[in-house]
Design a protein around this nucleic acid. Structure first.
Length: 597
RNA sequence: GGGGUCGUAGUUCAGCUCGGUUAGAACGCCGGCCUGUCACGUCGGAAGUCGUGGGUUCAAAUCCCAUCGGCCCCGCCA
């Protein structure tokens, strides 16, 4: 230890105030402060120290005429030393007020200063700038978290969760914890596995969500449950995806979909109100999944801008343009986006989009520019007057506009145009308007067909209730059945979603059967749920919201790592601790595990 | 698994096309001076495995190959 003082586990005094809270009306008070040295400005005679704690910064003044000892101690301090200071709060004299600092009206004239702990020079500055490489920030995360920005983010997260807990408590929800060591279930993401020492060769799985457990809590009669639940998924990471994340998980007995959505709206509104002081004015619009796909080509539309998809199929009826004619002959579709005249793409940008579509989706982009003298572009000459007129009508084309079209199977074309739409939105900064556009996407299909597995898979999860109006089609054409499911979307990001669940044992078995589980398999994997449904299980439903993504929105950041204290890198590594790491062979032996990697 | 991009002083970067003195700058750090600074000023100084390994060459931060890692994206994530 570099300090000359004998090591003491206690500071020389307790603080009376946080540095960042001192204001003009504190002038005259004697205060005791504890904090980190942000900067020291040593004038030889006078020394100024900016002292930082979690509430902010205040300027200390060390004058040898006030205290020679404090001045001498002050000359020893360096960045990030943890020091204790006593002194008097004084109003700054005319001309020395710092309008940039909330505490800039005052300063603390120090009469005693002690170095509580020294600091090696920090590997990166602890002030506002975030220019440092993320890997280094993560390696020294405890220093990165000292930065005001990260302090702000994590406290915003606390505020959001507190607001949500208060709101749910006010609405009769009971917080109940569920196991972290649980059962591996098929379907869904890859599980994180935990070996069981006392049951060699057997494994727990960390929960991907408490879905089944909360349903059992409804069977148990808690009526309204919630939990801030840690969830684990062993999949590749993204800017907004970490292997462990938190959900606000809630479930209620006998709700209509509107009841769950209303609770969720109130919950999110409470978080925005508490953290940002803004009203987001629910209820949000409800948009059927089919409409979202038709208009936006995606199930989580960003509604801050237009550029909606237009179905041009009938407009090109009888076209002599061979590409379109072939598509129409196969009963497929042509969709387009009208890029209005105020947004101009260069020929090169159009070529780049075309090339991306070709290489990634094996699709072509047909585009035309509308001018006063007619249509221009590589394919314009193949298009006749009638179809031009009809397309112009459908897409509301005006001179200056660009019409970008993709032809093929509607189910494939619409997502591709949806992707182009988002690119255009980003290209012309339509997605950085500062607006907040909430909506619910409802009436999701219950199933979709998985080409990979050659069977039906659940769009949501296997416990989602079918829309009662569609029970009849379950047998005939299950792909047409809608689910009682709903997703909340904000600016093109899914914040959360949920559904009414199946509470009938027979219906649950039937759905599992449609998903390819025999009765035997279903019993083996989900027997406890199916059994539970036989004992007076009430109707129930709920939803789950991504805490981390919600906090990203509240903090205005694009990276989930900015709202987590100790996140992992893209390779799921923690550069600070070195996790994951190899373990002692004896540990493996105890667990009956042989490593082959 | 695939694509893009980056890796040079503690930090942020320049240098790399077109190989050639001792690899530079800023901030930070260390030392001196300085009583109203708050991006303090000023004088001086230290600081490099050019991610790693291999290859080409008289000579490699620079060219080639491989590999590791960060970030972003696709696949994947009910």
């Amino acid at each position: 230890m570099a300090s000359k003082e004998a090591y003491s586990p206690l500071p020389p005094w307790q603080r009376t105030d946080y540095c960042g809270t001192l204001r003009a009306n504190d002038a005259g008070r004697d205060v005791a402060l504890l904090g980190w040295v942000q900067t020291r400005r040593d004038h030889g005679g006078l020394i100024f120290i900016d002292l930082r704690d979690r509430e902010g910064i205040v300027q200390l003044v060390l004058n040898p005429e006030i205290s020679a000892g404090a001045h001498e101690a002050g000359s020893q301090v360096r960045s990030e030393y943890y020091i204790a200071a006593r002194g008097k709060v004084v109003l700054r004299s005319e001309g020395t007020v710092n309008a940039e600092l909330p505490t800039g009206q005052v300063e603390v004239v120090v009469n005693a200063l002690e170095i509580v702990n020294t600091s090696a020079p920090p590997p990166f500055p602890i002030d506002g700038d975030t220019a440092t490489a993320e890997e280094i920030r993560l390696k020294y995360r405890y220093l990165d978290l000292r930065r005001p920005e990260m302090q702000r983010n994590l406290r915003a997260r606390h505020q959001a969760i507190k607001a949500i807990r208060d709101y749910l408590d006010d609405n009769g929800f009971v917080e109940i914890e569920t196991p972290i060591l649980w059962k591996s279930t098929p379907e869904g993401a890859r599980d994180y596995l935990v070996p069981s020492r006392v049951n060699p060769g057997k494994f727990y799985a960390l929960p991907q969500s408490p879905q089944l457990l909360k349903q059992l809590l409804m069977v148990a009669g808690f009526d309204r449950y919630y939990q801030i639940a840690r969830c684990f998924r062993d999949e590749d990471l993204r800017a907004n995806r970490q292997p462990e994340f938190s959900q606000i998980d809630l479930e209620m007995t006998c709700p209509r979909p509107d009841d769950v959505m209303s609770i969720a709206e109130g919950m999110v509104a409470a978080a925005f109100r508490r953290v940002l002081g803004v009203e987001i004015n629910p209820p949000f619009i409800r948009m059927p999944y089919a409409e979202a796909m038709e208009r936006f080509g995606i199930d989580k539309p960003d509604m801050r801008f237009g550029l909606e998809l237009k179905n041009l199929t009938s407009a090109f009826e009888g076209t002599s343009f061979k590409v379109f004619a072939d598509v129409l002959a196969r009963g497929q579709s042509i969709y387009g986006i009208n890029l209005p005249g105020q947004h101009q793409l260069s020929r090169r940008e159009l070529d780049e989009i075309t090339e991306t579509l070709r290489s990634r989706y094996a699709m072509g982009l047909a585009w035309v520019k509308v001018t006063d003298s007619g249509w221009q572009g590589p394919i314009a000459k193949y298009l006749g007057d009638g179809e031009r007129e009809r397309a112009a009508g459908v897409a509301s084309l005006k001179p200056g506009d660009t019409l970008m079209m993709v032809a093929g199977d509607a189910a494939a074309v619409r997502p591709v145009l949806g992707e182009i739409r988002l690119q255009l939105g980003a290209r012309f900064n339509l997605d950085s308007t500062g607006e907040r556009k909430f909506l619910w996407v409802v009436d999701f299909p219950l199933f979709e067909y998985s080409e990979e597995d050659k069977r039906l898979v659940s769009v949501n999860h296997p416990f989602t209730a079918p829309n009662p109006d569609d029970l009849a089609v379950l047998d005939k054409n299950p792909l047409d059945a809608r689910a009682l499911a709903y997703d909340m979307v904000l600016n093109g990001q899914e914040l959360g979603g949920g559904s009414i669940r199946i509470h009938s044992r027979e219906l649950q078995l039937k759905v599992l059967e449609l998903l390819g589980f025999s009765r035997e398999e279903a019993t083996d994997r989900f027997g406890f749920l199916v059994d539970a449904l036989t004992y007076g299980a009430p109707p129930h439903g709920g939803c789950a919201f991504g805490v981390d993504r919600l906090c990203m929105m509240l903090c205005g950041t694009d990276s989930l790592r900015d709202v987590l204290a100790f996140p992992k890198t893209g390779k799921a590594v923690d550069p600070m601790s070195g996790a994951p790491s190899e373990v002692d062979p004896r540990q493996l032996k105890e667990l009956a595990i042989k490593v082959t990697a």
